[in-house]
Design a protein around this nucleic acid. Structure first.
Lengths: 372, 372
DNA sequence: ACGATTTAGTAAATCGTTTAAGTAAGAGAC
DNA sequence: GTCTCTTACTTAAACGATTTACTAAATCGT
């Protein structure tokens, strides 16, 4: 069988040897070859060696993983479903840290980690979730109303929900987003700031970009967005300020560039905010950028608080005050809960993982610098 | 069938419905149900609807991916083999960007991306490569002498090598590491620096940490390390300086902390270097740290050049002079070459991808600042 | 009304393993 | 010498789908 390649070259389609051919070569049954690989105690060492020798001769690299998976009833991989195109996931340090945790859990269990492509919003191919050869799913970062969640659940394989509304019988891991956000806002308020601005990433799957009114905030289907906003709000209202007067800019993504744009809009308003709360460090980085462009120095002219405490946060100038969140642990916990389910155990959902305000140099009392 | 869970709870093992059961429920053959999912044109729309209805009733979520994979002869995923434990991969922004590219290529082809766990050096479980249900491998960041490379090749599935010595019949993608490194060193030399220091990540699988002599440098089995060192060397010798006198510190990893330690050692030598070449931006970040600790300002007292041009490089203070390398494109190209092979095409290995020196603020003539 | 074509569906082989159950031969106990 | 255990294999049935080749019925042109 020949194929014609891109450059006209032909390529022989390699036929891989099977367990049967190896068996025939050695003169034993297929079961014995299988045992040579899977249960060495079932045959004599000499025969085992002969099997391996024959395998080498035939270019047989061991049992086919797919066939084995079918027979054994599992595929040896856990899937992570991520809302955005796969490649966006990697662009966000927080998501990467989460994956790091999941991968660690997978590794512990000798499982592979399959990143499930959840293609672009339009032309979304939900089949990816249905066609992924995995033993379970970790659902991360999907909107509460994303059909992919149900699709995954319908597969009837173990699932762990991350930052999703809890569902009966499905373990989930949550973060104390409200508490962290609240602490961040309280910190600013305690410093004396009264004119706040908020830079948010997507609130719902139909991110529009622009100021988000209360209605839009309430409807937010991305859990972390809604929860963090709630936390800010609680702190603000506790101080007696009106939450409704604080501009919340909904960016269409989570990159520094978007934070830059968002902060630009906020800063252009009258009166302009003396402090900005960003829903992520990536966005906060963009706020720094926006401030610099306008000749505003942080924290003298503008205080900035992020969320996530990614590694870079401690290296910025000034270091970013932010809300620490155990990203890696979150992934690790989710991954381990999935593994536990695969073992037939029924893990309990842990209490929301703690967040913690980390005060660095990007926040100060308003007007601390120039003659503001 | 019942299992006892961690907390004593029991969990029913869910038996998923099969295509046969759905067929029986509808009163048709299994083939027809299969067609309902895979070739809608083979049956009447009404029957198709009845099939789906029955599937819903029975909780059948569509053909089992593993069984389908077996029959079709492919698994629908590409594997990425990475040397370090999986979780380290994510800690390095450059690796993450590479993965981003691969994932994009996979996504284009409707394939999943399987991260293959290549456990710790000791107790390394090479079976992971043999047991991964993938249609092909992208080999990334492995030492030239890593047995995993052969193991992957033995599977007789398409493989793409990244930054590996070329092998007959195996497409590979390479970077112009030599050129980039050379440009970096020439830049420093051109500025007038004569006392250079180099901070490298692992040279071989047995990274020892400490100054690496010429012998050790020559033996380096991590290709990027060796190539970059070669580039520096070429520039240095061209200027008439003796490469052998330039201290090269081999760190045991690629995190900023390791760069900090390495730079500490270099800076403590007499005479101390006026400029440091780091093999990665991550390490360069650590060099910044080390300089700060010692009251050295960059670039006045110490010039620093990185390698990779990760996003953070443009945001540091001062912005990092570094060598740009198209990480995402590298992954994309590798991924697409793998996909091409899966289609039976025989892709040609492209010319080494270009690198480019990006001069920012971390380099200046020696003694440009204080009275050095 | 005839043969040719199309449509809608089926039967059965097959993908490459694993594993439960079975067997034959040799070892040890008495 | 018989009986029971091991040891070292083998047989054959899954695992859950896809696909090729085939058939029966409906449709069509003339």
């Amino acid at each position: 069988m020949l194929h014609v390649g891109v450059n006209g070259r032909k390529k022989k389609a390699i036929r891989r040897a099977t367990i049967k051919e190896v068996a025939a070569e050695v003169g034993v049954s297929a079961a014995t070859v299988s045992n040579a690989y899977n249960r060495p105690d079932q045959l004599s060492p000499q025969l085992r060696e002969r099997v391996f020798a024959a395998a080498r001769r035939l270019g047989y690299a061991g049992p086919d993983p797919v066939a084995r998976g079918l027979r054994r009833g599992r595929s040896g991989a856990v899937g992570v479903v991520y809302a955005d195109p796969l490649s966006y996931a990697f662009a966000d340090p927080a998501a990467v840290m989460f994956l790091e945790g999941v991968s660690q859990a997978a590794e512990e269990a000798g499982l592979g980690l399959l990143l499930v492509p959840a293609p672009l919003r339009e032309g979304r191919n939900p089949k990816a979730v249905g066609e992924a050869a995995v033993d379970g799913f970790v659902i991360y970062c999907l909107a509460e109303d994303d059909p992919l969640v149900d699709l995954a659940l319908e597969r009837r394989i173990p699932v762990v929900l991350v930052e999703q509304p809890p569902r009966e019988g499905v373990p989930s891991v949550e973060m104390d987003d409200v508490g962290g956000a609240r602490a961040a806002a309280e910190h600013l308020l305690g410093l004396g700031h009264e004119r706040l601005g908020v830079v948010s990433f997507e609130l719902g799957r139909d991110a529009r970009g622009g100021l988000a009114d209360l209605e839009r905030q309430r409807e937010a289907t991305y859990r972390p967005s809604r929860l963090r906003l709630e936390g800010y709000r609680a702190a603000v209202e506790e101080t007696g300020l009106a939450w409704g007067e604080i501009p919340v800019y909904e960016a269409t993504g989570n990159a520094p560039e978007q934070g830059d744009i968002a902060a630009g809009v906020l800063l252009a308003r009258e009166p302009s905010p003396t402090a900005i709360l960003a829903l992520s460090d990536q966005l906060a980085l963009g706020v720094f950028e926006a401030a610099k462009k306008r000749g505003l120095s942080v924290p003298e002219d503008l205080s900035v608080v992020g969320f996530d405490d990614v590694p870079e946060a401690s290296r910025t100038d000034p270091p970013l005050t932010t809300v620490y969140q155990p990203h890696v642990e979150k992934g690790l916990v989710a991954g381990r809960m999935l593994v536990a389910q695969l073992r037939g155990e029924e893990p309990q959902s842990p209490a929301p993982l703690p967040t913690r305000l980390v005060i660095r140099g990007s926040t100060a009392p308003p007007g601390a610098g120039r003659d503001e």
